[in-house]
Structures are given as C-alpha cells and as structure tokens.
C-alpha cells in the first residue's frame, strides 16, 4: 500500500510545526521595532542591536558563558566518550552498574535538585578547605556533570553500530588495541563525538538553573543576566540579543547537519567500495581492502 499523504496531513503539519515557530518569529520581528514599548509597533529600526553593542555587562556575561561552554563541553566530551567506550566494550567490571546509573541519572534528575546537591558540597568544601570559590570553575564542573550524560548516550549508540570486526582485522595485522581503536573506531564514532560536543556546548550556553546555584556573587552568565532582565517583563534589547543567538544557533545546526550528512554519505560510499573489493575474487582477504578504505572516512 502506498503511504497516503493527504491534505489533512499537510494541514496538521503546517499548524503543528507552525505554532512552534510563531513565538520565535514574533520575537525576531519585534527586535526590529523602533518603539521601546515591546508590543507596540513603532516602525523598523535596528536601534536595539546598536544598544546591544554598548551593553558592557551583557557582552561580559556572553564571553563568560562562551568560556564556560567550551570548557564544560570539552571535559564532558572526553569523559562521556570514555564512559561510552567502557560501557559498550567492557562487558563486566566492578562499578559498571554504578557508572551506567550515574551516567543516565542526570537525564531524569531535575536540575534544581542536582544544583542544590552540588552547591551544598561546594559550600562545605569551601568551609573546610577554603576551596573552591564559587564562580567559573564550579559552573564548569556542574555543566560538565550533566553534559556527560548526553555525550555518552550519543556516542554509545554510535559505538554499538560500529563494526568491531574492522578493529579485529587491524589487530590481526599487528596493531595494538589502542592503535586499532584510534585508527579504526575513533574515525567511525567521530560524528557522534562532534555532535556530543555541540550538544553539550549549547546545553551549557543555555543553562540557567545550575549556573545560578554555582555562581558566586560576582559571576553572571548570559542566561542569568537574561533571566534577571526577563523577570521584569519584555525588553527590546533582549529581543535583539535573542534574535542574534537564535540565528547563530540555527545556522550552526543546519551547517553541522549538512556537513554530517555529507560525511555520512562519503563513509557509506567507501564502505560499499570496500565491500565490492572484498567480494571481488581477485582480493580474497579483508587485509587489503578494508583498512585502506576505512582509514579516512571523514
């Protein structure tokens, strides 16, 4: 039976997905509003964007948030990938259950609770050892903790799909397990690692709750600043800022998606080529075909 795609389906999709974008479109539209009253249209203007450039505290917290996001995402991507490798490749080791529970728990734990728990720990550490002072470092640790979960889940599913026989072939050819992993499997799971990093980066950049608990009196991340302004009502400067963020993130996601699809397509092509070489009677052994084709998939 052919899949029917009727007018009703199109209407549901337009309505359903359209509604998701209405608030964003409204926000972008009003960011070009000349009137300081957010809901009254006063003509087209880019005044709020130039205001934005002179808003020093806003720029400072934007830079701080970017710093935090890069650090947190990098820590999370290393630890998350290691956790994924441990969980997928090592069938049993002491602490396996604990690791898998701790990796997934942040996904079901409200951030208010993890925030409070971590803050209580840091406060008493500070009381006992005079370290760490709340600020940049504590925010990075908190963000990395919940980002690890997302990286592990992403990399885990990719690692499950990666063909281990390729790695075994490399080891048959004399590569050590670490060498085989780095040359064969790491390129295969690279897209998942990249998307894990990007996901962590945006989650960290967007985080309000953990940051609020972790930040000391002088640290203000961008979401914290936005939240304190938004709490007082709509603000045209925030509209302009939000527009810039949404455009940047949207462009980034679309680019990343496009690049990943291209890499995927090339990878598939190479795999097919490898299989063809494999199947050809002239090359009776995997040793010639496979590793060469897989060495540079990205």
């Amino acid at each position: 039976m052919r899949r029917q795609f009727s007018a009703l389906h199109i209407a549901i999709l337009c309505l359903g997905i359209g509604v998701l974008y209405v608030p964003i479109v409204v926000l972008v539209g009003y960011s070009f509003n000349a009137s300081p009253l957010v809901n009254v249209w006063g003509g087209f203007s880019t005044i709020w964007y130039s205001r934005l450039l002179h808003h020093q505290s806003l720029l400072d917290s934007a830079l701080l948030s970017l710093d935090v996001a890069v650090c947190a995402a990098s820590i999370a991507v290393v630890l998350g990938t290691l956790a994924a490798i441990a969980l997928v490749r090592f069938a049993r080791f002491p602490g396996r259950f604990l690791l898998s529970a701790m990796v997934t728990a942040p996904l079901v734990m409200p951030e208010v609770i993890t925030g409070i728990a971590l803050l209580l720990l840091f406060v008493s550490l500070l009381h006992t050892f005079s370290w760490p002072h709340r600020g940049f470092l504590t925010i990075v640790f908190a963000h990395a903790t919940f980002c690890i979960a997302y990286v592990t889940v992403t990399v885990q599913s990719r690692l499950h799909g990666a063909d281990q026989s390729l790695e075994e072939a490399a080891m048959d050819l004399g590569a050590g397990p670490a060498r085989a992993f780095i040359d064969i499997t790491l390129p295969l799971i690279a897209p998942a690692i990249v998307s894990g990093w990007l996901l962590s980066f945006t989650l960290s950049l967007d985080d309000l709750v953990s940051s609020s608990f972790m930040a000391g009196p002088s640290t203000n991340t961008l979401p914290m600043l936005i939240y304190s302004k938004v709490k007082l009502g709509l603000s045209p400067v925030i509209n302009a800022l939000a527009t810039l963020i949404i455009v940047a993130v949207g462009a980034g996601v679309i680019c990343a998606g496009w690049m990943m699809r291209r890499a995927e397509a090339r990878h598939e092509l190479e795999m097919r080529e490898a299989e063809r070489l494999n199947a050809a009677p002239r090359v009776p052994d995997v040793r010639e075909g496979v590793p060469r084709a897989v060495r540079s998939p990205s």
Partner: peptide, 15 residues
C-alpha cells in the same frame, strides 16, 4: 527548537 535556547523560547512565548 531543541538547539535554540530554552530560556529564550519561554521568553518568546511571553510576547
């Protein structure tokens, strides 16, 4: 929308 800021989406709804 997953990737765009959650905080900003809630804020956008306010308008």
């Amino acid at each position: 929308p997953f990737w765009t800021s959650f905080l900003l989406r809630v804020y956008a709804l306010e308008a």
